[in-house]
Nucleic acid binder design. Structure first.
Length: 763
RNA sequence: GGUCGCAUAACUCAGUUGGUAGAGUAUCGCGUUCACAUCGCGGAAGUCGCAGGUUCGAGUCCUGCUGCGACCACCA
């Protein structure tokens, strides 16, 4: 007999183990269904975002397994270059080891050590949630085969002219001492000061006043720019301005980029330290003068002694004081402006001129835009298409080199005179070098590694064995659907589409289901500093994994944030308890569970009615899953079991418990459990076992249900309505009104068998 | 500044080609009758952000406005 209380912790583990062998694809030649799991960071532990992401994927794969598909849910882990190196560096520091004192090789081996020790945490947590991923096919973006794929891809892109090396202005993180991509920047609104500084005009007593928030870069100025139509400054164009203290002469030029409204209308142009100035510099062929180094210090012969060699903020402070003293500072204006920060280091990003590797994203974006335009790849919800286009149509070269140790080392070798050899191996590079008369010993391997997202972009095919031509690629590529959050639409989704089209000549997935961020119950972003983080593991501990899954599915309304509070999960747990108790009732009635609906002659009206409702329910859930409306599905589940099955059918059973009704009850409930299994696998499998329905629903195919006669469904629906009306009127009039009497009379005159269950009104 | 969303009961949200506004929670009343108080039955609760327009008819379509949010751009 089932326990009186529903206590999920007692059986979840056991149920999971019971089905674990079915998670991998079979060798059958059924239609394939495949999903790539977005690989969590190796440093990650399960948060609610993962839980939502995994729940949705698990519902899909479990549903398709039941529906006779050969299912692959490809799991894996991302090496998360910068994030992981930071975590391990911090741990080493805590242990008294200065990471900077280690050689590159030593640091890398320390990171591997760490990975092997604590890198698999999240997998266990995903298992606790019930994820039925194909675990033994799991991949890591730094494992040997994946490294091969990355080298192959990099070399191919280089030879196709889609990767190039160039000296360009990049976002430089002065704390991590590496370049990062545009996407890894978070702009923050800050209060700042706009300093108005006057530069003397050569051969005159006049001055030109510029406005800047970064005076310390003035020594890197190459020009002062004004708008060509700006009447105030027209006469200055062509003249020469003199940078204070260093007395370097720079031209005053006209450029349409300048905004007459902003600042003084005169813009200091510092091409080596500002992206827009860089563009102006290119247009006017200006000198690029670097005055800030990779540590964020002012360091240059161009910088006067008194502010040289200082951290930029310090230099700025001293310089402003001096400018004030000397009467060169004309005005200080408080402003609010946005300042770029590195998303990992949380430190101000310095635009720096450095040699880096770039992917020509613009060229690769073309096809990637087209497949979405043509509907080959569909976004759910569709609106994300616009965001995707917006970004893809304005895409810039992607800086993929990182000056850190942990990651895929770029397969490039430099000759003594800057020759570049991009090859798969050192031998191949040496062979190419030899053709130019360069000895192998003279080659120097590039130490930069690739942006983590470069390897992630290969995920759809590298996980399946590319560059080999494997069975799994054949069977599972393109994958069926990608389930992910909008926060990595550009980082990951767009780049996978670009890479896949280039290497596979085929789209990587047909559908992209984009879910929202999980926020707290008030709609606030969960963050440690706010202290509103809800740990999914605690929720599972308290209410069970099924309750959490059901809640997440319930709240996953397309295009809306998922606002999750503990209360929701409790409500779901209570709902699951309802299913539990229904099972207990059926068990106490000794309802048989060994017969399927197809084996039963269903004659009674009540019974045909419940079968019709089940059929409708079965169809609806299939439709909901097809349309990725997990929110509808959970609402339908609640409606069927609560309003239809428990509140009416079970109550009616208390007045009609002949053998046919019992058999129907057992068969309907069994099929209900099967349908709901993908959503709440633990409790449904446990009930299936306990009631003797089957060992597990994991591969249980849908029962074929015949359509019911509409007349019967309609009659019982009307009967149900009458019951509700009677209860309501009884309550309102305390059973005294004539309306109540006439409703009762209608019930008494109801012809046929339904009259027998009239006692249900007392409920 | 550009783009895209969102606004429905006290709260969280549904409302799928326009046709009498729905659910859960909270609240109020009744209830422990052989599944279930982690519950049941019943009730109350909404000028569908505001203003126009199209239509026989608008929560739904169009325009404008207000408020909120996200993303992109921007360290004059």
């Amino acid at each position: 007999m089932l326990d009186k209380t529903y206590s999920p912790k007692q059986f979840e583990q056991e149920i999971y183990q019971n089905t674990i062998d079915e998670f991998s694809p079979s060798n059958s030649c059924n239609k394939s269904f495949s999903i790539l799991m977005p690989p969590p960071n190796v440093t990650g532990s399960l948060h609610l975002g993962h839980a939502l992401n995994c729940t949705i994927q698990d519902i899909l794969v479990r549903y398709h397994r039941q529906n006779n598909a050969n299912v692959l849910w490809q799991p894996g882990m991302d090496h998360a270059g910068i994030a992981t190196q930071m975590v391990v560096t911090r741990e080493l520091e805590a242990a008294g080891i200065d990471a900077k004192s280690l050689t590159r090789e030593e640091l890398i081996s320390k990171i591997w050590e760490w990975k092997n020790k604590s890198g698999n945490l999240i997998f266990d947590q995903q298992k606790a949630l019930g994820c039925s991923a194909s675990w033994e096919l799991s991949r890591f973006t730094m494992d040997e085969n994946f490294q091969k794929a990355v080298v192959e891809a990099f070399v191919a892109l280089y030879k196709d002219g889609l990767i190039f090396r160039a000296k360009r202005l990049v976002n430089w993180d002065t704390k991590l001492k590496t370049a990062i991509s545009d996407l890894e920047i978070q702009n923050k609104e800050e209060k700042g000061i706009l300093w108005h500084i006057k530069y003397k005009i050569a051969d005159s007593e006049e001055f030109v006043t510029i406005a800047t928030t970064r005076p310390e870069t003035m020594f890197g100025d190459s020009a002062i720019a004004v708008h060509p139509d700006d009447g105030r400054y027209k006469k200055l164009v062509g003249k020469i301005a003199i940078i204070p203290y260093v007395n370097r002469e720079i031209p005053i030029i006209a450029d349409g980029y300048v905004d007459m409204e902003k600042g003084t209308g005169c813009l200091k142009v510092t091409p080596a330290h500002h992206f827009n100035d860089f563009a102006i510099g290119k247009r006017h062929n200006l000198e690029m003068i670097t005055v800030v180094d990779q540590n964020g210090h002012t360091t240059s012969d161009y910088v006067p002694e008194f502010v040289n060699g200082l951290y930029v903020k310090k230099a700025r402070k001293l310089l402003v004081e001096k400018l004030k003293e000397d009467g060169i500072l004309v005005k200080e204006e408080e402003i609010v402006h946005s300042v770029p920060y590195g998303d990992r280091s949380d430190t101000v990003i310095e635009p720096l001129l450095t040699d880096q590797w770039f992917v020509d994203a613009k060229a690769m974006a073309k096809d990637a835009i087209k497949v979405v335009e043509d509907g080959e790849i569909k976004f759910y919800p569709e609106k994300w298409k616009n965001t995707y286009f917006e970004w893809m149509r304005n895409i810039e070269p992607w800086c993929v080199s990182r000056q850190i140790a942990w990651g895929h080392q770029i397969p490039a070798w430099f000759g003594p005179n800057g020759e570049i050899f991009v090859e798969r191996t050192e031998e191949e590079a040496a062979a190419e070098a030899a053709k130019l008369g360069i000895a192998k010993e003279k080659l120097r391997r590039e130490t930069d590694v690739l942006d983590t997202w470069f390897s992630s972009a290969l995920w759809p095919f590298a996980t399946l064995g590319w560059p080999g031509k494997t069975d799994r690629l054949q069977k599972f590529y393109p994958t069926s659907v990608l389930v992910t959050g909008f926060d990595i639409l550009f980082f990951w989704v767009a780049r996978m589409i670009m890479a896949s089209l280039h290497f596979m000549k085929k789209i990587p997935f047909k559908d992209v289901y984009i879910h929202a961020l999980v926020r707290d119950e008030h709609g606030q972003k969960m963050s440690k500093s706010k202290g509103n983080v809800i740990n999914p593991l605690e929720l599972m501990e308290e209410y069970g994994a099924d309750a959490l899954r059901f809640t997440l599915a319930f709240l996953s309304v397309p295009g809306r944030d998922v606002k999750l509070g503990k209360e929701h999960v409790k409500i779901s747990r209570n709902f699951i308890t309802k299913i539990w108790n229904a099972a207990r009732f059926l068990q106490s009635k000794e309802v048989p569970f060994d017969k399927k609906l197809t084996d039963i002659q269903v004659k009674g009206k009540l019974n045909r009615w419940i079968v019709a409702k089940l059929k409708k329910f079965q169809d609806e859930i299939s439709q909901n899953i097809k349309e990725y409306r997990f929110d509808y599905a959970t609402r339908n589940i609640q409606f069927f079991i609560r309003d239809i099955f428990c509140d009416f059918f079970i109550e009616a059973m208390k007045f009609q418990d002949d053998q046919e009704t019992k058999s129907v009850a057992g068969a309907v409930f069994a099929e209900f459990l099967r349908i709901v299994n993908p959503f709440i696998p633990f409790v449904t499998d446990y009930l299936a076992k306990s009631l003797g329905i089957c060992d597990t629903f994991i591969l249980a195919a849908p029962v074929n249900i015949e359509d019911a006669e509409p007349s019967i469904e309609k009659e019982v629906d009307e009967f149900v309505e009458l019951i509700h009306a009677i209860r309501s009127e009884k309550q309102a009039s305390e059973g005294q009104s004539s309306e109540y009497a006439s409703l009762l009379e209608r019930l008494n005159n109801w012809s046929g068998e339904l009259k027998n269950i009239a006692g249900i009104i007392r409920q």
